[in-house]
Design a protein around this nucleic acid. Structure first.
Lengths: 144, 144
DNA sequence: CCGTATCCTAAATGATACTG
DNA sequence: CAGTATCATTTAGGATACGG
């Protein structure tokens, strides 16, 4: 009987141990080697978050997405889309035409994720002035 | 007069161009080199997201945090906390005692961010079974 | 206890070329 | 168009040692 992750000592409030094993609330990103941590990284990763955010606006082809996610390379977008498709967040539909046409869109699950992600993104964007101001204060009290 | 980022062509719906310059809604993570992208990465990054999530539960000392964020190294936690402090999301309070005692907690802004982040994290954790199932389907239709 | 400094490895990313 | 393959480079990350 080996416990999967002994995150906290037990005295504190929230989110301790417990990853998988049993019935309900079993996943815990705070525990190393919990599969949910990997998925969270796909979702919140540099390109994953932007790709999910872009797909929130509709259905797009590969190169359309590339333009919407400014700065992403072919390789990274391809890799990101594969990971999100594998996790069941993105649906890929290839038309057997010539030239080929491939459409990407969110699955219902992916839509729920991107909804919550966009809530976060919009909040951050909406408070960038506060962040930039905080940075100036932080940097100001330390110039050597 | 050089436009900062020509993300989309204009035909599509949402989130095109516009980063900074003027009055209100000016930041756009989808544009390369928009400062909000950097902050989003601090917030959603591998250790940033877990650190903000851990701090949602209260005030913690450095090594308490290290235990809560299972697997983080001293170096990464230190770096992460500095970035979050600089962005005005985390407050650091050092007592001049011996041995030293340093407490970390969320700022009001950081709390709002972590709230939205946790909404996302909890959703992902709550649907890991769906994700894992999707992965099996994905992998199943492709075993060479 | 709370870190920083250093060194080193592994992973992520970018650039380029090429295929169906 | 929609990618994959390969290679070069950058960056993140871990281990360790040391200092306030």
């Amino acid at each position: 009987m080996e416990s999967v992750a002994q995150t906290a000592e037990g005295t504190e409030s929230g989110r301790g141990a417990a990853c998988v094993q049993g019935k309900d609330l079993a996943y815990n990103v705070f525990a190393r080697s919990c599969p949910s941590r990997g998925t969270l990284e796909h979702v919140t990763g540099r390109w994953g978050s932007l790709t999910l955010g872009a797909l929130h606006d509709g259905t797009f082809r590969f190169n359309e997405l590339r333009r919407r996610v400014d700065g992403v390379s072919e390789k990274m977008l391809s890799q990101t889309l594969h990971a999100l498709e594998r996790d069941g967040l993105v649906h890929r539909e290839a038309q057997p035409t010539n030239p080929p046409r491939v459409d990407y869109r969110l699955t219902p699950l992916g839509r729920e994720v991107s909804e919550r992600l966009l809530t976060l993104i919009d909040f951050v964007e909406g408070h960038m002035d506060d962040v930039l101001e905080a940075r100036e204060r932080y940097d100001g009290t330390r110039e050597s």
